[in-house]
């Protein structure tokens, strides 16, 4: 092994190296999240829920309590936990299939009920774990295993705009943003704000993360980053879409 990259304190060393493919964005997203947890000093309070999808490979990722749930059902599991024990800090971590397809009703309803949890959704424009099928976030004309001739906008619509949707339906106390693994500092900042919003008891917080899936994209390192930075950002605007009306920020 060459030099070990510095790990966030809350990462579980025994479970590293992690199980994601080389070049996968999940590891980076979880690094930014780990740093956010460290900086907020909340390792003892966080309960991390991961979905079914490649996010499940994080079931032993952190030195925090973790529950791996069913596909699409992480948001309600964490909602139930938080409702039963508001002292905990609940994080629901999922893929775009988990959050925007099978679990979309949970995302919508958690947002409208203003559940005081943090949902993090990794957007890699496909279903990674099941071998690269079309996802709600698949780009127009993108070839996947179930859109072998390219995603047809006529037949299957446009890529889901998650944070925009959450911003539209959630209350003023909610937080919604889209970060990218190409900008780790900003991503960590979004995570911190999202978690702070929960800590302050404001309401729902949601961060979508633009991420990479070289295995199913069948890209090399260069192609992977090009796709992330050039193609994906054409449809997915990075930034904050809703910041809570001040309560927590005044102090």
């Amino acid at each position: 092994m060459s030099v070990e990259p510095k790990m966030p304190k809350c990462w579980r060393k025994e479970s590293k190296p992690h199980k994601f493919c080389p070049g996968c964005g999940h590891g980076l997203a979880l690094k930014a999240l780990g740093m956010a947890i460290d900086e907020l000093g909340i390792q003892d309070k966080v309960v991390f829920g991961c979905d079914i999808g490649c996010s499940l490979l994080a079931w032993d990722f952190f030195d925090v309590d973790i529950v791996q749930t069913h596909h699409g059902r992480t948001t309600p599991v964490i909602t139930g936990l938080k409702r039963a024990n508001p002292d905990l800090i609940g994080i629901a971590y999922m893929g775009d299939g988990g959050g925007y397809a099978i679990g979309s009703q949970h995302l919508v309803n958690a947002a409208t009920r203003n559940e005081k949890i943090t949902a993090i959704l990794v957007n890699n424009t496909n279903y990674g774990m099941t071998g690269g099928q079309m996802a709600p976030t698949t780009l127009p004309n993108q070839k996947t295993e179930t859109s072998p001739y390219g995603r047809s906008i006529e037949e299957t619509g446009y890529p889901t705009q998650g944070p925009e949707m959450v911003a539209a339906i959630a209350r003023d106390e909610a937080y919604a943003a889209r970060g990218t693994v190409a900008n780790m500092r900003q991503l960590k900042g979004f995570f911190k704000k999202a978690l702070q919003n929960q800590i302050d008891g404001n309401g729902f917080s949601f961060v979508e993360v633009l991420s990479t899936c070289p295995t199913n994209w069948r890209t090399d390192a260069k192609g992977t980053w090009k796709y992330l930075e050039e193609e994906m950002t054409k449809f997915f605007k990075v930034g904050e879409f809703k910041t809570p009306a001040a309560k927590g920020e005044q102090s």
Binding site: K19, P22, C54, L56, L57, M129, G131, T215
Partner: peptide, 13 residues
Amino acid sequence: ALYIPNFGVEQRG
């Protein structure tokens, strides 16, 4: 002839 690969949840590794 019969051939079956092993397969699991991890895509690589």
